[in-house]
Computed example of a mutant assay.
Amino acid sequence: MFDLVPFRKRNDDPFRQLVRSLNDTFDFAPLAPLHGSLQTFRTDIREQADKYAIEAELPGFGKDDVEVEMKDNYLTIRAKRQHEEEQKDEQNRVIRRERRSGEFVRRFYVDNVDEAGITAKLSDGVLKLDLPKKANTEPARRRIDIQ
């Protein structure tokens, strides 16, 4: 009895209705290219004393399909997939065609990284990146006299 909500139903949460209407808008078929053109993948990022270690799940991608770029303190991982499968019958007519293609992109801001020492390895669908930190330098201190 204490969980009754007066003057409105419990499932009429305005925020939930807003999110639902936005999802319905972008699931509308003519807007489908906006919805799924760039996909994402899962990553783990660990900070260690001397480096940042990043592991990204990229199952089914080869090293020629993956691009890693560092520019203006932003690390960008981009993976592109282009796959076509086609089945034909005896008269050489297409009976089934499946195409899977897409681009997966993640971008991270990283500071204090030695760009020349970055290493990457792709093995068993996992991209492993090591981003070594720059030598730790203390900022110069200057005492300001108060007048």
Rank of each mutant, 00 (worst) to 15 (best):
T43N: 01
T43M: 02
T43C: 01
D44V: 14
I45G: 03
I45Y: 01
I45Q: 04
R46N: 11
R46M: 09
E47I: 05
E47D: 10
E47M: 06
E47W: 06
E47F: 12
Q48V: 07
A49L: 14
A49H: 10
D50V: 12
D50Q: 12
K51I: 04
K51A: 15
K51F: 13
K51S: 14
Y52G: 00
Y52R: 06
Y52I: 15
Y52P: 02
A53N: 06
A53R: 09
A53W: 10
I54V: 15
I54R: 02
E55D: 13
E55N: 14
E55H: 10
A56P: 04
A56M: 12
A56D: 03
E57F: 15
E57G: 14
E57I: 13
E57P: 04
E57M: 14
L58D: 00
L58K: 02
L58A: 00
P59V: 12
P59L: 14
P59Y: 11
P59W: 12
G60Q: 09
G60L: 10
G60K: 08
F61V: 03
F61H: 05
G62R: 06
G62M: 02
G62E: 04
K63F: 05
K63A: 09
K63G: 00
K63I: 13
D64E: 10
D64G: 07
D64T: 06
D64L: 09
D65G: 04
V66G: 09
V66F: 08
V66S: 05
V66H: 05
E67V: 15
E67T: 14
E67R: 14
E67P: 01
V68S: 02
V68R: 01
V68E: 01
E69V: 08
E69N: 05
E69K: 08
M70E: 02
M70S: 04
M70W: 11
M70G: 01
M70H: 04
K71M: 06
K71R: 07
K71I: 02
D72C: 00
N73Q: 05
N73F: 03
N73P: 00
Y74S: 01
Y74A: 04
Y74P: 00
Y74E: 02
Y74I: 07
L75K: 00
L75M: 09
L75Y: 01
L75P: 00
L75E: 00
L75Q: 01
T76L: 07
T76K: 11
T76N: 02
T76W: 06
